[in-house]
Simulated assay, not measured.
Amino acid sequence: MSTTTQTPIELTAADLQGPGVVFCPNPKMPLWSNHPRVFLDVATTGSAKCPYCGTEYVLKAGEKVHGH
């Protein structure tokens, strides 16, 4: 697990997959930091944190997720 403080990754509604989720690790992460892929629900609360690496994903202010 990572113990360093990271800047949250801001997402737009277009960045979300299917029912408002994002997956981690994301394609921009270096290969050495890979862990099992997890799908994180960002649409429900506006943010989610990966249980493996601690990366936090947040929906940009004012973004509307369709279907929620």
Rank of each mutant, 00 (worst) to 15 (best):
M1A: 13
M1F: 11
M1V: 10
M1N: 12
S2N: 14
S2I: 00
S2W: 08
S2D: 10
T3L: 12
T5N: 06
Q6D: 14
Q6I: 06
Q6P: 01
T7F: 04
T7K: 10
T7I: 07
P8C: 11
P8L: 10
P8W: 04
I9N: 10
I9G: 05
I9K: 15
E10V: 03
E10K: 11
E10Q: 13
L11E: 13
L11R: 15
T12M: 03
T12F: 01
A13G: 09
A14H: 09
A14P: 09
A14S: 12
D15Y: 07
L16E: 06
Q17R: 11
G18F: 09
G18I: 00
G18K: 12
P19V: 07
G20N: 09
G20C: 04
V21T: 15
V21S: 12
V22D: 00
F23Y: 11
F23G: 05
C24T: 06
C24A: 13
P25M: 07
P25T: 08
P25V: 10
N26C: 04
N26P: 00
P27S: 07
P27A: 01
K28N: 07
K28D: 07
P30R: 05
P30H: 03
L31W: 12
L31D: 15
L31N: 14
W32V: 12
N34C: 08
N34V: 09
H35C: 00
R37N: 08
R37S: 08
R37K: 13
V38S: 03
V38Q: 03
V38C: 01
V38K: 02
L40E: 11
L40C: 13
D41R: 10
V42C: 09
V42T: 14
V42S: 09
A43F: 10
T44Q: 15
T44H: 15
T45K: 15
T45C: 06
T45W: 09
T45V: 05
G46M: 04
G46E: 04
G46T: 00
G46N: 05
A48W: 10
A48N: 09
A48V: 09
A48G: 15
K49C: 03
K49T: 13
K49E: 04
C50I: 01
C50K: 00
C50M: 01
C50F: 03
P51H: 08
P51C: 03
Y52L: 14
C53T: 08
C53W: 06
C53P: 13
G54P: 14
T55D: 13
T55A: 14
E56V: 10
Y57V: 09
Y57G: 07
V58C: 14
V58N: 13
L59P: 02
L59H: 02
L59Y: 01
L59T: 02
L59K: 01
K60R: 15
K60L: 04
A61E: 15
A61P: 12
G62K: 02
G62I: 00
G62L: 02
E63H: 06
E63F: 07
E63Q: 14
E63N: 07
V65T: 07
V65M: 03
V65K: 04
H66V: 13
H66Q: 13
H66L: 06
H66F: 08
G67Q: 02
G67K: 03
H68M: 08
